[in-house]
């Protein structure tokens, strides 16, 4: 089963390297890792998705806590959470096919953000499943290139994503 961890880390140089180095050193294989800003300019936010069959989420969590620059880690897997991934997909599209592709994108509430002579770029935001489904449908046209940001996640409701008892 996939586990999603939210880590708040100090926004200073080298922190991503520390986290990545920890994963390598402890042999933790991760599915995706997203790093971005948070509401606090001094704090960056990481969303880490791991396959719990391969690595124990609790181990990842307790090891992350050993890093001095990691402020808080929360496993939100079994909590009410919204999670989104953003993908850019470049699809081969001659003029004839363009319309059909745009229609598909519309069904998924995806946007065509660039049109070239023989390709289009589609931007889609959603769960990993939703993105996968669109990809499935686009594949016959020929996917030339694609990139995702990796999942970002946030708890619903009032919580600010910090574990209730803070740093253990």
């Amino acid at each position: 089963m996939q586990h999603t961890l939210i880590a708040k880390v100090e926004n200073i140089p080298g922190v991503l390297n520390r986290v990545a180095s920890l994963f390598r050193r402890r042999n933790f294989n991760i599915d995706s890792l997203n790093v971005g800003r948070s509401e606090n300019p001094k704090v960056s936010r990481m969303t880490i998705v791991i396959d719990n069959n391969a690595v124990d989420a609790a181990k990842v969590q307790s090891n992350l806590y050993k890093l001095v620059n990691v402020i808080d880690v929360q496993d939100v897997t079994n909590q009410p959470v919204v999670s989104r991934d953003l993908a850019l997909i470049k699809v081969a599209a001659t003029a004839e096919k363009r319309h059909e592709i745009t229609n598909l994108a519309n069904i998924f509430r995806a946007n065509v953000i660039d049109v070239g002579t023989d390709s289009v770029i589609i931007e889609i935001t959603g769960t990993v499943d939703k993105i996968e489904s669109l990809m499935e449908l686009l594949r016959p046209f020929g996917i030339l290139e694609m990139v995702t940001t990796g999942q970002v996640a946030m708890l619903r409701g009032k919580s600010n994503g910090t574990s209730p008892n803070g740093h253990h």
């Binding site: 100090e10 890093l67 001095v68 990691v70 402020i71 803070g166 740093h167 253990h168």
Partner: peptide
């Protein structure tokens, strides 16, 4: 005071 380092 280190926000990410509070030994139990």
């Amino acid at each position: 005071c280190l926000p990410g380092y509070q030994p139990p």
